[in-house]
Design a binder for these strands. Structure first.
Lengths: 216, 216
DNA sequence: TGTACATCAGTGAACGCGCGTTCACTGATGTAC
DNA sequence: TGTACATCAGTGAACGCGCGTTCACTGATGTAC
């Protein structure tokens, strides 16, 4: 029997499984009442073990939260990646994937793009992952340009030589940033419930804003 | 001595003053660590009185929070009103006033336009105040139209008879909503620190988005 | 195959903390005659 | 002006709660000979 056959022992498998369930329960708590509600003791109780037992799997509440945050970023990056790999790397598909991802778990969205969690330092690789995601959007903008659409986000094109080039409405960078901030504007207000009672259909508004970003 | 001369007794004045100081300390706590950090006991300690003493002024933590939320909404509405009353009722002035108000106290901004505070029911008149604010923006859009600018937010005008009229890029309602969601998109990401390390200047980006909303 | 040992999941009790809130009470301020 | 009473700000102790975290321990699982 060679050693390469089974790199994961039963114990390791079990360990991974329990860790995964802890995270699942953690997400349920966050989904229902935000980051504040994340409680190791409650998770333990739900899983039928003592609070102290969780410390075999996560060294602290902060460590668990950090891993959840990282997973959230990764999940979003993966979502974009999947859209790109699926051959539909256009802005429209990306925007719809983003909205679906956000609606699937609003609190997860806010963990990524919402106000910073008080008293919590986000992981060091956060910025790089965020840049990564923005790069993918920018890639889609470039692709759109190559396919013939190279017009500005909207409004007049900047006079050359004036101002920063990333503020030129026609540049791919500017379009990517607008894609991000505008959709986030609609999405975050929708998820926060701020359209309620204002006779605004979030889905239609989202598509309308998207229309102005991804013409052609 | 007539009774109309002094409608506020010394006691009433003192009472109002202490209530105001409690709120000030409360805002300081929220500003530094979010809504979660709002603690009656800590406020009491800072003010040099016992925790129980605060209950002379606010019946519960929730009551205090509710009053803070209401004040936040009112403050924003007043800010817009002041701009309008000052004769500068154009979209540009409003947008700048909004940004200044937000930067002055980011947590206050999130109390109004951020994710809902878990476990807290916002006051019933919230929606009406929010509609009020949006109405003021819409008023500025109408005024802009009257002054000659009646073009769409950007992109092609809708074909008449097709779709909802509030989604017609040229309608005042649509422009007001875009004003709101787009500026919120930039602002909330800025306040959350999501532009950090991404080579994006929030002030310039804000103005750039504004340019596309308030041409003419 | 059987025994001796090491590893590790999980327990239960305890610690210290801060929270919101209640309650009986004291003492100062204002009011009525 | 002085006295009797009512109002009300503020105290200090206590309640119950849930939290994160530590620690000595038990018992099951895996490993080496």
């Amino acid at each position: 029997m060679t050693e390469t056959a089974a790199t994961t022992t039963p114990r390791e498998r079990y360990r991974r499984q329990v860790r995964a369930e802890i995270k699942e329960r953690a997400w349920e708590q966050i989904a229902s009442a935000g980051t504040t509600a994340l409680s190791l003791n409650k998770i333990a109780k739900i899983m039928g073990l003592s609070g102290a037992g969780l410390y075999r799997y996560f060294t602290s509440r902060d460590a668990l939260l950090t891993e959840l945050v990282r997973d959230a970023y990764q999940s979003l990056a993966d979502t974009f990646r999947a859209v790109a790999d699926g051959g539909e790397s256009d802005l429209r598909s990306m925007a719809r994937a983003l909205r679906a991802w956000a609606l699937a778990d609003p609190q997860r969205y806010f963990l990524v793009y919402g106000p910073p969690v008080p008293g919590y330092r986000s992981p060091a690789d956060r910025t790089s992952t965020m840049s990564d995601i923005l790069s993918q959007i920018r890639g889609a903008c470039d692709a759109a340009a190559r396919k013939g659409y190279s017009g500005p986000v909207c409004g007049p094109a900047a006079e050359p030589g004036e101002g920063r080039e990333d503020l030129d409405p026609g540049s791919a960078q500017r379009r990517a940033v607008a894609f991000w901030t505008r959709l986030h504007g609609v999405l975050s207000l929708e998820l926060s419930g701020h359209f309620a009672g204002m006779d605004i259909d979030p889905a239609l508004l989202y598509e309308a804003e998207l229309d102005l970003l991804a013409i052609g």
